[in-house]
């Protein structure tokens, strides 16, 4: 007990030290060092701070921190299509991921149950799943745009299609590999198919299903950034692309940081659900 808590404390200290070292090196590397060139004021204005004050093109941690503070103070402002608060952009992305993901849950889990419980369906559908699974979700994008004709729904469709496979395969596997003796217990108690599915197969397969759901949410969050870069309009992916076009590297770095944090939170939520349904044997 004591050793684990002291290990955690030491690990925390090392983490903080590493972060401080990283920020320090970053700061030193982007500090103004280059000699200041003498030039006419008009030319200097054109060239920007990089040339006039020896400022690095890469923002330092202090710039990023200051900018982040601005974003955090006003996360939800809306000044038209190309200038929305980061909070709004993240909310768009999370809403798309949430919708596509929930639709995938609604399809993958019941379908996975059916396939897992029927050896015939399982064999018959296997070739389709094997072919569809390795397709990059972004490859569906043109087809989605062409048939759906709405960029926002197309992004949701891409999320749907990329999150369905891990959930479907894990549900099939979890349902098909429920211990036979547990099923036999239900059979000797004359438990009907529906009640058996809910009282034996679902709890037994739940940890495997949740593991698939956790993999899916990770993939969905990876894909949404790329999808939004393609379809544009709103979302954190579009924000990154737009800020790159504005050459605002500071905002790109902030977006990267927030994408990472939101991804971690989504993963942690699913990890918590997984722990809730896991049973020791």
């Amino acid at each position: 007990m004591m050793t684990t808590s002291s290990l955690r404390l030491r690990a925390g200290l090392v983490s903080i030290a590493l972060l401080a070292a990283f920020l320090g090196i970053w700061h030193l590397a982007t500090r103004s060092t280059a000699p200041v060139a003498t030039m006419s004021p008009e030319y200097a204005k054109l060239m920007g701070l990089t040339a006039t004050q020896g400022k690095s093109a890469m923002p330092g941690p202090l710039d990023v921190g200051a900018k982040l503070w601005q974003h955090l103070k006003r996360p939800f402002y809306d000044n038209g299509p190309n200038d929305k608060g980061l909070g709004i952009q993240l909310a768009y992305s999370i809403a798309r991921v949430g919708t596509g993901y929930l639709l995938a849950v609604l399809v993958a889990i019941p379908l996975g149950f059916l396939i897992g419980m029927s050896p015939l369906l399982s064999k018959a559908l296997d070739p389709f799943i094997q072919v569809l699974k390795p397709i990059s979700p972004l490859a569906w994008m043109p087809l989605a745009l062409y048939t759906i004709k709405d960029s926002s729904i197309s992004a949701i469709f891409v999320i749907f299609i990329c999150s369905i496979w891990p959930m479907l395969l894990n549900t099939v596997f979890g349902v098909a590999s429920v211990r036979k003796e547990w099923v036999n217990v239900a059979r000797t108690l004359e438990v009907g198919t529906v009640r058996r599915a809910f009282t034996v197969i679902l709890p037994a397969a739940a940890p495997t299903i949740l593991t698939g759901m956790r993999i899916s949410i990770g993939i969905a969050w990876l894909v949404i950034v790329a999808a939004e870069m393609l379809v544009g309009g709103t979302g954190v992916g579009y924000f990154v692309w737009n800020e790159w076009n504005n050459l605002s590297i500071t905002n790109v770095i902030i977006a990267i940081l927030l994408i990472g944090i939101v991804g971690m939170l989504l993963d942690q939520i699913l990890a918590r659900f997984t722990r809730m349904v896991t049973f020791p044997e």
Binding site: N184, T188, L189
Partner: peptide, 17 residues
């Protein structure tokens, strides 16, 4: 199967959850 014939399994087969 029937509820009239109860089975005690070798591996006890309790539902662990």
């Amino acid at each position: 199967t029937s509820l009239d014939r109860a089975v005690i399994f070798q591996s006890h087969a309790l539902l662990p959850w």
